[in-house]
């Protein structure tokens, strides 16, 4: 098994809109190690979210190779990609993306509906995930009955409930106050350290980025700086 959970080799990404085409990445190379906590920073339009989308299999490189555990994922069709995401990826969004009409436990259960698990096992896993983020008492609450921080913790529980290899976080603290953001970041750090989850987090916030082991700085589709924690 390779040390790298992700490898990007000569990745190009071009967006075409009408007559105009914008090249986001022009031969990007990157390796992310299993169990790493990586933050990606950079100005708007630098390609952070595009990179995150490609790593999550929701967008494809225009050319180049994107390998996950040594296997190319950019050749998978939509159905295969959906299954790959269900098996390996947990998403955490800036605005939580919870289903407003479902309770916290039903939201957390969503990824488990894609697995062949009994309802009892699903319930157990949901309870464990909610306990882990400290929301066991709020299982029956709907998102509108929870604070922003609690909603994001439900989103984290949803992301980890199916035990994915990677958590992809898009500005996970962007909508939260500092104190709540700290709680969320500590949660992520715990998942990285205790559960060996590979975490890739896009953020504008240097304080948030400081929780990561590796900080990448992206500008105009090129990594201009790389900090690795001692």
């Amino acid at each position: 098994m390779t040390d790298f959970i992700y490898e990007l080799k000569q990745v190009h990404k071009k967006f075409v809109k009408g007559q105009e085409s914008v090249e986001i990445f022009d031969g990007l190379d990157l390796g992310i190690k299993r169990g790493d906590f990586v933050s990606i920073m950079g100005p708007s339009g630098s390609g952070k979210t595009t990179l995150l989308n490609m790593l999550g299999g929701v967008d494809r490189p225009s050319s180049g190779a994107l390998l996950f555990d040594g296997n190319p994922i950019n050749d998978l069709n939509e159905g295969q990609l959906a299954k790959w995401r269900a098996d390996h990826i947990g998403f955490i969004f800036q605005f939580y993306n919870l289903m407003p009409m479902l309770t916290a436990e039903k939201n957390v259960e969503l990824p488990l509906l894609l697995k062949k698990l009994s309802p009892k096992k699903r319930k157990e896993n949901v309870a464990t995930a909610l306990e882990l983020v400290g929301l066991g008492e709020r299982a029956k609450h709907r998102p509108n009955e929870l604070s922003g921080g609690q909603q994001q913790r439900v989103a984290i529980a949803r992301a980890i409930v199916s035990d994915p290899d990677v958590l992809l976080c898009d500005e996970p603290t962007g909508d939260l106050d500092r104190s709540t953001a700290t709680d969320i970041l500590e949660n992520l750090q715990l998942l990285n350290k205790e559960f060996n989850k590979t975490i890739i987090m896009v953020t504008h916030d240097p304080v948030a980025a400081a929780y990561a082991n590796t900080s990448l700085h992206l500008d105009k589709g090129v990594f201009v700086e790389k900090d690795v924690a001692a």
Partner: peptide, 14 residues
Amino acid sequence: TQEIATLRAIGFTG
């Protein structure tokens, strides 16, 4: 749209 896209991101099928 966002709910459907989120479900698809999680792995739900079209």
